[in-house]
Simulated scan of single mutants.
Amino acid sequence: MERPRPRHEGGEHHHDKHEFAPEERIELGITAAIAGDLVIDDHTARAIAARLGSIKTPMLDLFTHTGHMDAEGFKELRAMRLDPPTSEQQAHWIDWLGGYWLSVEQQRATDAERHPTYEQRVYVADLDSLRRTIHHGLWVDANQAPADLKADVTAMLDSSPTVGATRWAVGAAKDLAGLDLTGSSDTALISRLARGVHQHGAAYSAWASIAGTDDHDQLDKFANFHVASYDSREAWMRDIADDLGWANHLDRAVDPMLRPFLRIDYEAMAESPLTERWDVVRGHDRRIHVFLR
């Protein structure tokens, strides 16, 4: 089954999108955290890491591009906070980034004991008030019908400190498995993506990253193209070998005295041209998600 290739790889382009300045994006994300559960969202955290220019380190670069931070990186972050040259603004941002990292670690510990669930929310921000440097917005359920989502947005705008406010966009998001909806005001798209993540978890956000977001119907074809999800590429190769019966074939073809010493090199398989028949994405959950091309 051949899938039409999206016009915009990565799913980052769609028409109803407001572009925030970097510092504006960060402050809006912090405002959303204060109005919510006091933890910034994934993309605000990465925006902070990208803007800590004067104290940029390999750890921050890695986190900016991959969202991955380990214990050593957190120690480095704490050292930055105590460094005298750190400005008041940088210290403020580092505090929020540190709180985010601790929250992620706590969530990982919880997810190790149970299957992770997602309760999708977006912070809808009043852009007319933001233009006046006034932060006004509301956390709403993203996993609802577009009309209901629009009603929540209308209620937020009706309570705006700016008379006649009509412009809005997503300023932050939670539990969308890494999907970045910042700047979006497309209620149909927000609803569709949230529903997909609610139903399929991080595998769906991986699908959106390769299917793109311009073709809404394509986003609904997740089940047609999703093969499976695995903890590693080697686990995926092991599953393929089992389906093809390669171990049984070796049992029949190889001398029984030699057979105990022969192993299939799953790591080499994962690097072979065999894998080019599929799209493979490492998801927000750090697992491998495999899709037909």
Rank of each mutant, 00 (worst) to 15 (best):
T31F: 14
V104T: 14
D41G: 15
L62D: 15
Q106L: 09
S103L: 04
L77C: 04
G29D: 03
A35G: 15
A50N: 09
H65F: 14
R25F: 13
G67T: 05
M59Y: 07
R51H: 13
I30T: 00
M80K: 03
L102K: 10
G99N: 10
A71D: 14
D37N: 12
L38I: 13
T86I: 13
L97Q: 04
D37R: 14
I94R: 02
L97K: 03
S103P: 10
A71N: 10
A47S: 05
S87V: 11
Y100P: 03
R25N: 07
I34Q: 15
P85D: 02
I34N: 06
E76Q: 10
T44M: 07
L82G: 14
T66N: 02
P84V: 05
P84H: 04
E88M: 09
S103W: 11
S87G: 03
Q90V: 01
R51Q: 15
V104Q: 10
D83S: 14
L28Y: 02
E27V: 09
D42M: 03
A47W: 04
L60R: 06
L38C: 12
L62C: 07
Q107H: 05
H65W: 12
I48K: 00
R81F: 14
A91V: 04
G67A: 02
A109T: 12
T66C: 06
A109P: 12
Q106R: 08
A45S: 07
L97F: 05
D70W: 01
L38N: 15
E72D: 14
T44N: 00
L52K: 06
I40L: 02
R81I: 07
V104A: 04
A71E: 13
P58A: 00
R81W: 14
M69E: 12
E72T: 13
K56M: 15
F74A: 09
T66D: 02
L77I: 12
Q106D: 13
R25S: 13
E27K: 07
I26R: 03
A45I: 06
L77E: 04
M69P: 03
G36D: 02
I94V: 06
T31K: 04
R78V: 14
V39Y: 06
L102A: 14
F74C: 08
W96D: 08
L38K: 11
V39G: 02
E88G: 05
G53Y: 10
A32E: 11
D41Q: 01
P85F: 10
A47T: 09
A33Y: 00
A49I: 04
E105I: 12
Q90D: 15
W96F: 01
I30W: 05
E105F: 02
L102P: 09
F63G: 07
D37T: 11
A32L: 04
E105C: 13
R81H: 13
G99H: 00
Q107L: 10
Y100R: 05
L62M: 09
I94W: 03
Y100T: 00
D61W: 03
S54R: 15
V39I: 07
A32S: 06
T44G: 02
R51A: 14
A35N: 11
G67I: 08
A47M: 05
M59R: 08
L52I: 00
S54F: 09
I34R: 15
G99R: 10
L102S: 12
T57R: 04
P58Q: 06
W96S: 01
I94K: 00
I48A: 00
I30H: 04
W93C: 06
E105P: 07
I94T: 08
W96T: 03
G36M: 03
I30L: 06
D70V: 01
